[in-house]
Nucleic acid binder design. Structure first.
Lengths: 332, 332
DNA sequence: TTGTACGCGTTATCAA
DNA sequence: TTGATAACGCGTACAA
């Protein structure tokens, strides 16, 4: 069932069929004959052949680590919405190992299977970035940064500072920090920025920076649990804990439960991201517009083609819920 | 940068390059020359052209409604794992409206953009199924059933019966049921099966079936809340509630909180699915192997090509946690 | 307004 | 073991 069959059925040439399909000038009567033939034969253009001729595929690639984590799902949601609206399909490149990451960075951009590539939370090194740029494939980074590409990032430093300032404003001075770690060789750099925010807030309040109050864990619940546990085993446990992601904050909450500390009475907890679960569990957190970041990313991919790369910073917002409260000093 | 460039660089014909790439017989020395040329030119085969010649794309389509819901995410996880292992990419067709659903059912199978289509929780009607079958595209259904295609389903009736039997075994006799509804024209049919399981369990225990104890809601938290709320407003509220999905069960839990009923002391709650959240919130539930269903689906798609369609029923299992307990009768 | 013929980058077939 | 060439199905100049 190809374009020749339709042409024969409608007794026209394939050129005419193509024009009917792609909106060229065709006499009304001819158009109708072709349309009837198409309908009768149940003809649908072969998209592979189409992209070969056209030089584009109508497909956007999205490269994302651990896509089942809530943060990435939210970004994906935004991506899907924007792509669907623009009539593009999306193919998912999930990254769980260094090997996958390297493989994708090396091959994906030159295969021309996609019209654009959205990379989430993964940072190409300079050599990879150079190769990608030379391949000419539009690339946009979300939650990651590289000078060669348009990047959408939340104000990581500012957001972290906001979180810690919130805790300080509640009277806390011994504030633990469960930060995220580099998983594999993925080159996340959010962790550094958030650490800077943490330090800035302390410094501004005249609180000494104590590196032993920092625990670096994986960006998931198990990691958060380990962090919360470690911080509570100290002789002088912190009265508040800032976790670099909501998932880690959930782990911290679990650790608190195991240590039989009441949140927020004994310990205040604040997370980062504002995933759906945070609302469900009443977790105070720093919200970043995850879905929107995905949407913006796709729009940049589609419409920001030839503009020079730029960094789009989106706002973080404090969402106060019920896991943080004024430090109980024992005084009335 | 195409195969001709490589051929020229290595002073061979494109046929030889192709053979090096696809594993034909090539003299070692020639092979190395070609490989060097490939490396030097950073050549990567154009996958569009490749699929045109090959007649296949190496891509699997997955059509799924509301893909951000935990159940679908879990299925997707299984799909992604299996597809990656088999060296296939996946393109995501998210369905949120009837229109999208119809569009995809009509066009997707004949465009030959994918080598196989996995359809999750969506049921084609007979006409659609016929067209798809005629298009010759391998299709597998997950969490849905149609006689034309291999289908992977959990024992919906058995699972629901298990849930209600569990409640009955705890002494409950007035058992509410928050079932799921047909959203749009998506033709879910899980709801009917689960209703049957509910009735069977009651009947087996000699309990009268009371249709007013059933509330039909959307398959999400908001729906569950409405259901829980409605059931609690009765003069004789149920002592236990079975929700057709964990998401709805979460809504029911929220409703209980609003009505200031203690779970499980005042009311026992059981869900269905066993999403990650269920563990986090200690929800008793009926587990279905969501991830595995995705994996099996892909395997069937890839290896079950010419075998006749069959229905693969996977097991449901009771996972007892802390939202169900023996009915408190007031007697010691 | 319509038809012809070429190009897109591969794979596969067949002859050498 | 290698090279030449015909598909694959479409878009699109260009000619008619």
């Amino acid at each position: 069932m190809n374009i020749y069959d339709v042409a024969r059925e409608a007794t026209v040439s394939i050129g005419t069929v193509s024009r009917v399909l792609n909106g060229g000038y065709v006499k009304q009567a001819t158009r109708e004959r072709v349309l009837t033939a198409i309908h009768k034969l149940d003809y649908v253009p072969n998209s592979g052949a189409r992209s070969l001729g056209l030089g584009r595929t109508g497909v956007l690639g999205i490269m994302v680590p651990f896509f089942t984590r809530p943060f990435f799902i939210e970004v994906l949601r935004g991506v899907e919405m924007a792509a669907a609206k623009a009539g593009h399909e999306i193919v998912l490149y999930n990254v769980e190992t260094d090997q996958q990451r390297d493989n994708y960075f090396k091959r994906l951009p030159m295969r021309k299977r996609v019209d654009g590539l959205l990379i989430v939370s993964l940072r190409p090194d300079d050599q990879e970035a150079t190769r990608i740029r030379e391949a000419g494939l539009p690339v946009v980074l979300v939650d990651a940064y590289h000078p060669f590409f348009t990047s959408i990032v939340v104000e990581n430093t500012g957001g972290a500072r906001m979180a810690v300032e919130h805790l300080i404003s509640l009277g806390h001075r011994r504030i633990g920090f469960v930060n995220g770690m580099v998983e594999g060789a993925f080159h996340f750099n959010q962790a550094d920025d958030r650490l800077n925010g943490y330090r800035e807030a302390l410094m501004a309040a005249g609180i000494d920076f104590d590196p032993t109050l920092i625990y670096v864990s994986e960006w998931n619940r198990a990691g958060g649990m380990k962090g919360g546990d470690a911080l509570l085993r100290r002789d002088d446990p912190p009265t508040a804990i800032f976790a670099a992601s909501d998932l880690q904050a959930l782990g911290v909450l679990e650790a608190m439960r195991q240590h039989e500390r009441n949140v927020p009475h004994d310990v205040s907890i604040i997370g980062f991201d504002n995933i759906e679960l945070a609302e469900l569990l009443n977790l105070t957190t720093i919200a970043q517009p995850m879905c929107e970041m995905g949407t913006i990313g796709v729009e940049q991919l589609l419409h920001g083609k030839d503009e020079p790369p730029r960094t789009i910073q989106v706002e973080a917002k404090l969402v106060q819920r019920q896991t943080t409260q004024r430090l109980f000093t024992g005084v009335t």
